[in-house]
Simulated assay, not measured.
Amino acid sequence: MDIRTMQREVDQWIGQFEEGYWHPLSMLARLIEEVGELSREINHSYGQKPKKPEEPAGSIELELADILFIIICYANSLNIDLEEAFTRMMEKYRSRDSNRWTRKEV
């Protein structure tokens, strides 16, 4: 699924509710909350803080998808085409950071 399709799907899902998209500050709080949940899962899987035996299993994949959902909501609510923004961002990295790191031998 491409980014534009994801944006349409999220917009159709949100569009069925009277409340619509949350306000930008509320979405920022939600994004921070989801990043915290991802951080917790990564710390449990790769860090020095294992889960307690009574804690339910989590999913790094689902936490990343939750973050993607909120980012798409943010973009949709602000009329941002994420595909276009992503293309512009990659061009910035290609020009600014092309010689920053050691390239692999091909």
Rank of each mutant, 00 (worst) to 15 (best):
R96S: 07
F17K: 08
S26E: 10
R94D: 12
L82K: 10
E9F: 02
Y46H: 07
E9T: 06
R8K: 06
A57E: 14
M89Q: 14
F17E: 04
M27K: 11
N99M: 08
G36W: 04
E61I: 09
P56M: 03
P53S: 11
L25T: 10
E33P: 08
I42P: 01
F17H: 11
K52E: 11
E63G: 00
V106D: 10
M6K: 13
E61N: 09
Y93D: 08
S59T: 07
V35C: 05
A75K: 08
G20T: 01
M6S: 09
S98N: 15
K49D: 06
I71M: 09
R8A: 06
P53L: 04
I71Q: 04
M90C: 09
L68V: 12
D2N: 15
E91G: 07
G15W: 04
R8E: 09
P53N: 06
S98T: 14
F69M: 06
K49Y: 04
R88W: 10
T5A: 12
S45P: 02
D11W: 02
S77R: 14
E91M: 13
L78W: 03
G58L: 02
E91H: 13
W22D: 12
M90E: 13
G20E: 01
L64H: 05
I67H: 11
E63T: 00
R100I: 10
I72R: 02
F17M: 06
E54A: 09
E54K: 09
L64I: 12
V106S: 07
L62A: 08
G20S: 00
N99P: 00
R40N: 00
I67A: 12
R4F: 05
N76C: 05
Y21T: 03
E19N: 04
L68C: 11
Y21P: 01
L82I: 12
S39N: 15
D2A: 04
R30F: 03
V10K: 02
Q12D: 14
T5I: 13
V35G: 01
M1T: 12
G15N: 05
E19H: 07
S39M: 09
A57R: 09
K92M: 15
C73I: 03
A57Y: 06
D66M: 06
G47F: 00
R88E: 15
W13R: 13
S45D: 13
R96D: 08
K104N: 11
G36K: 05
E63D: 03
E18P: 03
I70K: 00
I70H: 01
D2P: 07
R4L: 15
E19S: 06
D11V: 01
E34S: 13
G20I: 03
S77Q: 14
W22I: 03
A85T: 07
I42H: 02
N79F: 09
E37A: 00
Y46T: 03
N99G: 05
G58D: 03
S98V: 13
R88S: 07
I32M: 14
E34Y: 05
T87A: 13
Y46P: 00
M90F: 04
G47C: 00
I32F: 07
E37C: 00
I42L: 13
A29F: 01
D66G: 08
S26D: 12
Y74D: 08
I71W: 01
R40C: 01
L62S: 05
A85S: 09
K49L: 10
